[in-house]
Write a protein that binds this DNA or RNA. Structure first.
Lengths: 139, 139
DNA sequence: CCTAAATCTAAAGTTAGGTCTATGTCTATG
DNA sequence: CATAGACATAGACCTAACTTTAGATTTAGG
């Protein structure tokens, strides 16, 4: 299948200018254009965008994604670099998830705290009762 | 305990100017100053900063954190707002974690892919073999 | 065929969240 | 008691990742 920029924008829930910006930054190599200059996204471009979205979600910068895309163009010589990059991304993601889980734990405590405060109609009581061990552990 | 801005910056691994910026933005209400104007962070300021860091990690903007801090100053009238905010934060965090886990799943696939590619010395073989079901599911 | 909607480029503008600079005062130590 | 290091303010600057604008061209449907 082949898509216009508008179709792709809708598909990925991205702004059209974001796609043009990615193209300008070199994230979509070999992007076809028709005779009058309109971009045509083929399966390869789409699958590239899926990877870009994934790397973005993993916290990578556009610049670093560009480096990866360049490696892909360079062929088998860069396979090891690419593997190492994904291994590093995996580590990064795993610790991000751990951090979010610990943040969630603190939020859970706050939910408990304010649930009680709302029930009491005042913060005073819960403030005295919950000099919380979990909170102390976090510091 | 009472701390100088430098000590707090070290404790939280924040830039000194970031703390001044937070102060300017109103995130640290009732911050004491000594006679010559130097900031003094007491237990309350520190515990506020812990909450700020937590809310930041949960993806909240400085502006929204400010709204919360203001609610805290306003007293018991805003308890319900605060509870609702933390409930919303919890939801947000839970879906962030889910999204990161799904991203991790895709990265895992890429690791597998490139591990095989590196072993083969070429991408060609793995590219043909792994027209991956997991990948297809993601799209 | 006509016109609204989609696309193009280049370049300027925006936003969040800091970070840095210049200039001056304060403080702690040998 | 000198002086290096910490702190202060105001305001300029920075970066990433878009987003908007202006002005021109193309495409698609009635």
């Amino acid at each position: 299948m082949r898509y216009t920029i508008g179709e792709v924008a809708k598909k990925f829930n991205l702004n059209i200018s974001t796609l043009r910006y990615y193209d300008k930054e070199g994230l979509i190599p070999n992007l076809e254009k028709n005779e009058s200059g309109n971009r045509i996204f083929d399966e390869e471009a789409i699958s590239g965008l899926i990877t870009i979205e994934c790397l973005k979600k993993s916290g990578m910068s556009i610049k670093d994604i560009k480096t990866f895309i360049d490696w892909c163009q360079e062929g088998n010589e860069t396979l090891k670099d690419r593997l190492e990059m994904f291994l590093a991304r995996r580590e990064a993601l795993q610790s991000q998830i751990k951090e979010l889980e610990s943040t969630l734990n603190y939020i859970d405590y706050k939910v408990e705290y304010y649930t009680k405060a709302v029930a009491d109609g005042t913060e005073k009581i819960v403030k005295e009762q919950m000099s919380n061990p979990r909170l102390l552990k976090m510091q």
